[in-house]
Simulated assay, not measured.
Amino acid sequence: MQERVRAVLLTPNDTLLLIKRIRPGIDPYWVIVGGKIETTDASPEDALRREVREEIAGEAEILHLLHTIETDDERQMFYLARIEKWNFADRTGPEFSQEGRGEYLLEEIPLTGTALDAVNLLPKEFATVLREAVERGEVLTVR
């Protein structure tokens, strides 16, 4: 089973960092920062820290596991995390240099239900979970 980790990254301005994907022939969509757990990662949290460094050249403080989505062949773990600094220009992930992968744009959006509804956040199941947690006030109250 392939395991993936994702970081719901909260900024000092209480906004959310998302990656907007623009690919030929597909409507734009947004994803949470993260990726595959590698065999060299000591834990899911270590994998998540590595992915944050690779994708946005930042250091995340992982707060807790927020949600897990599991299918027959994949498990995705979504963690709530805080981030103070990042530099998208210094990203190093291998996906950024691969031909045909389209564009990756880092966007900071307000952490509101309205803002989440305005983006096509994937996977949809997690978009719903995140929106509900935001509306219940469970995301910004975690410090």
Rank of each mutant, 00 (worst) to 15 (best):
T40G: 08
M77C: 01
A42P: 01
E61F: 02
E59S: 14
G58M: 07
R75G: 03
D46I: 03
K85C: 05
R49M: 14
I83K: 02
R53L: 06
S43V: 04
A57C: 14
E61N: 12
T71G: 05
T71N: 02
I37Y: 06
A60H: 02
P44N: 13
V52Q: 04
I37P: 02
T40Y: 02
L66M: 15
P44H: 12
E84Q: 13
L66Q: 14
D73E: 04
H67E: 15
E84S: 09
F78K: 12
D46V: 12
D41C: 09
L80Y: 08
N87C: 07
L48C: 00
R75T: 09
P44E: 15
A47Y: 03
E74L: 12
H67Q: 14
Y79F: 10
I83V: 13
R75M: 03
D41N: 09
L48H: 06
R53H: 04
I62V: 08
E74Q: 12
T68C: 02
P44K: 08
E45T: 11
N87Q: 09
A42F: 05
T39H: 08
R50D: 07
A60D: 08
D41G: 10
T68N: 00
R75Q: 07
M77R: 09
I62K: 03
L48W: 01
E84Y: 11
A47W: 01
E74H: 00
V52F: 00
I83M: 01
E54R: 14
P44W: 07
A60K: 00
G58C: 03
A57L: 14
I69W: 13
R53C: 02
D72E: 15
E84F: 08
T71K: 05
E70Y: 02
K85D: 14
A57G: 12
E59F: 11
S43W: 01
T40I: 01
A81K: 04
T71L: 06
A57V: 11
E55M: 01
I69G: 09
E61S: 11
E84K: 07
E38G: 11
E54F: 14
W86R: 09
N87K: 13
L65I: 10
R49N: 14
A60P: 00
P44S: 11
Q76E: 14
A42Q: 08
S43G: 05
D73R: 06
E51L: 03
A60S: 00
E74T: 12
L80P: 06
E59P: 08
Y79H: 04
H64I: 07
E55T: 04
L48Q: 07
T68S: 05
I83G: 05
W86Y: 15
L65M: 03
T39S: 13
A47E: 00
E38K: 15
A57D: 15
V52G: 03
D73I: 08
T71Y: 05
E55P: 06
Q76P: 09
D73A: 11
G58Q: 09
D72H: 12
E45K: 04
K85T: 13
E61L: 06
R82H: 10
R50T: 12
E55G: 01
Y79L: 00
D72F: 11
G58D: 05
E59Y: 11
V52I: 03
I56D: 00
I37R: 10
E54W: 13
D73H: 10
